[in-house]
Nucleic acid binder design. Sequence first.
DNA 1: TTCTCGTTCTCACCGGACGAGAATCCTCCT
DNA 2: AGGAGGATTCTCGTCCGGTGAGAACGAGAA
Lengths: 250, 250
Amino acid sequence: MPAISLINRTFAILETVAASGSVPAKEIAHQLEIPLPSVYRLLNELVANEYLVHIKKEGQFELGPKCFDLGLSFRQRLLAPPPIRQATTELHRTLQAAAYFAIYRGADIVLTYLSDCEQHPRLRPLRFGFHEAAHATAFGKILLSGMTSEQRSSYIQARGMPILTPHTIARPELLDDHLNEVSTRGIAWEHEEFLPRTTCAAVPVRNSSGMCVGALAVSMPSRKVSGFETRIESALREYAGQCSRYMRAG
Amino acid sequence: MPAISLINRTFAILETVAASGSVPAKEIAHQLEIPLPSVYRLLNELVANEYLVHIKKEGQFELGPKCFDLGLSFRQRLLAPPPIRQATTELHRTLQAAAYFAIYRGADIVLTYLSDCEQHPRLRPLRFGFHEAAHATAFGKILLSGMTSEQRSSYIQARGMPILTPHTIARPELLDDHLNEVSTRGIAWEHEEFLPRTTCAAVPVRNSSGMCVGALAVSMPSRKVSGFETRIESALREYAGQCSRYMRAG
DNA sequence: TTCTCGTTCTCACCGGACGAGAATCCTCCT
DNA sequence: AGGAGGATTCTCGTCCGGTGAGAACGAGAA
């Protein structure tokens, strides 16, 4: 009995293939507990649509070119515009720290640009398109603090507040208090709440009506932060100002 | 009456969104001639699976993060390994021309790496994951010539031979003759068959059993080619040799 | 408030999906 | 060649979940 709908099955298969890189049909049937003929039916539809390819000689299925096209479209749609990218890059250079830019997207909070290098690498989980754990990242806090309280609570409701380190804020009340403070001070700090030994800071970017529409952030090893808080804050504000100026114009 | 199956509808919607970047439900319903309630049902499933996001305040739908994940998986699976990338890059430097590497993938011929720069840009349609028009590209010819004639004819059967320029080889018999020559000479030239004013050349990369498993190629403005054919050929052979060595080892 | 438009719900119909099992088709292996 | 074993497709009766017209709902705008 198909407890899950056809579409769910289809995407479950797509994701199984994506996760393994290369899978035989039997393996999929086993993992998802779908009878073999049904798996083949779906696989063939996916192949026909070019979301999968069938490597006949190995009896394996892999992702097809359409998957890459989707990824490209997504990237193209979301990538921050050049002035924002430039400001982020300069922030990176100025503070010698990986720098990030994030925005709202519907109900989501998404990273749309990041600038790093070998000496100052980004935090591993933070990549283009990252959209999780807003309660535990500096830019997430800024953008959460810019929501109405209804938006915010439904956001938290939907995603929960995973505990990532011993310092992660774990209770909604505490988060609310914290975000109020963030909101009044206009800067968010995040001390080892996302990754151990790592500190982040973020400030808001605003549009012409003063609404928060984005967040500019940096990450660095916690040991490098102490004593430089003001310097970090002023650099963030300077480049966030550049971004805001662009937002007002565009 | 649904002439096309549910899955086809689903992907048609996904692709409509990808193409437009941001679309209202009504627009999708209109374009695909699907009744509105059905469109919403599918949209909601896609949103639930995170392949789309719903921008409520604008009443628009856009691609979701899972699309990017699929793209990443595809890329990771297909990207040529470092030694191949290095050889391709060096070929690019040596010949001052955009360089390409392509392989078989199931029944397909796919570009898995390219190296170019502002002075020597790649041909615009050729990007990572490119898999069309094998009859009109140098690397495509190399890989076609390495197939059995059954494989080749079913390949051509399935994809046809689009005419891209006045010089594109347009008839299967001519292609067969041409590929025989390619096969005996061990190099493929392509003179303005893919894009006007552009010439490409490619040589095979072989594994330990001498089978053709890849193709290394360059593209350049046709006017720069004349008189340098031997130099181009010998550079191609040298770096293809490096690739073959890696293929034998790995 | 009322209007408007986007979105969801309701519900009876019915076509396409379902999956066990058998039949083919391949591909090595001998 | 001739099998052996696994991968893939086919068959077919059942029946469930998708379908879509129309109405209802809800949030913003006027």
